[in-house]
Write a protein that binds this DNA or RNA. Structure first.
Lengths: 219, 219
DNA sequence: TGTACATCAGTGAACGCGCGTTCACTGATGTAC
DNA sequence: TGTACATCAGTGAACGCGCGTTCACTGATGTAC
């Protein structure tokens, strides 16, 4: 079922006809993916042409179709690759709420989110759009990436709630969802805010504080 | 310069050749806009065809081009119309932070955002995408809509800061931006969360509390 | 009140480009003996 | 070590559809006298 990239002991990669890919083929496929990503950061999905991807990758359209069903297919794969990076972020998130240096660590979380978006902006944007338009495959990879974030945050909030530090009227999962939404939007949007004269450090710092405040109930 | 819809004492509307539109023409144009909006909630901008819009509006493609330069042009107009609804929301926002019933009112703000998105989901989605892709016109209308929200929130935060209720390390504008990002993402995303089993009331309530907490510094 | 003309609004039908997609083929690399 | 054959990887060139866009035209509505 899975077609994913970086799973351990991955199934051998196959092309559109089910043939196993040799090393050279894998390289070409990778070049096509990079080309897709590159172009997507310069123009919209709407304007993305198979021919251009092929040219950018130094190959021909026919080759593209050897590896992908269509443009969406390639984009989905890229989205899955990007989403596979999330676990590292989630780890930070789970250790971030106690101890002296929690502000520092919360900043790390916010910063991690922003970095993640900065390196996959185009893909994540398209992924979210497709997910919101209702495409199942994009919804799925999105949920796979964000689910653990929700879970992690909700767990933390719940535990602070049990300590009586967060009010009982807060719904942990709802709050977690709100925070995740917040982090994501922020990350996708920060450069526009910086254009408005809000310095990045202020943004990160302020967001880290909001995060701590909401999760732990104290400033 | 302005081409906007609901400005007071608007310039007379004109078609692509600069001819003033009579009442019948205005109706047709309106039908085309509605058709565009409708279709956009069923499929992506990528799949939106002039021919389909025309058919949906019960007219011909040639007519479409009498009123709009292209599909984007129509979509931009719709985005401007949607963004013209923001001022009402901003008003709620400015009166929402003192008094007994502030939780109730904060809920109203959150709910207002969600409703706004619910009635213009497709358009606002496309607007944001286009803005993030760097399209100036979409950026502009987006900023016009969200700017006052930022300003309003920042003003409130600043005043609570002066009262010593919000810590001085919070950057009012950054916090306002974070909250605006949060509200917007939440509004665009809530139905997915509800699908995950988070009840809408819980979501609204929890978000209202986060809002109050962050703006006023107290729960 | 009727006729002539002007403007408004809308469209059928066609043109032609751009693009997705495929097919039949070539050349490169690996393997058996 | 050399030859024959199998598989891998890639592509040129064409086909044809779908769609954006326009043009020359028709019919409807308004206005002058």
């Amino acid at each position: 079922m899975s077609r994913s990239g970086s799973r351990a002991a991955a199934q051998p990669q196959v092309d559109q006809n089910g043939r196993v890919l040799g090393p050279k083929a894998l390289q070409t496929r990778e070049r096509l993916l990079r080309a897709t990503e590159d172009l997507l950061s310069k123009r919209s999905l709407r304007e993305l042409r198979v021919v251009d991807i092929a040219r950018e990758a130094g190959t021909s359209p026919a080759t593209f179709y050897q590896y992908f069903k269509d443009v969406e297919d390639a984009v989905l794969l890229l989205a899955e690759q990007a989403d596979d990076e999330m676990p590292a972020l989630v780890e930070q998130l789970e250790a971030a709420w106690s101890g002296e240096d929690r502000l520092e660590r919360a900043r790390g979380v916010v910063d991690g989110f922003i970095r993640h978006w900065d390196s996959h902006r185009a893909i994540l944007r398209v992924r979210n759009l497709a997910a919101e338009e209702g495409d199942r495959r994009f919804r799925r990879t999105r949920r796979k990436a964000l689910g653990p974030v929700l879970g992690g945050l909700a767990g933390q909030i719940e535990s602070f709630q049990r300590q009586g530090k967060v009010g009982p009227e807060i719904h942990p999962y709802a709050a977690a969802a709100a925070l995740a939404a917040f982090l994501e939007r922020l990350a996708s949007y920060h450069s526009e805010l910086e254009g408005l004269g809000i310095a990045r450090d202020d943004l990160v710092d302020t967001c880290a504080r909001i995060l701590i405040q909401t999760v732990t109930g104290e400033a």
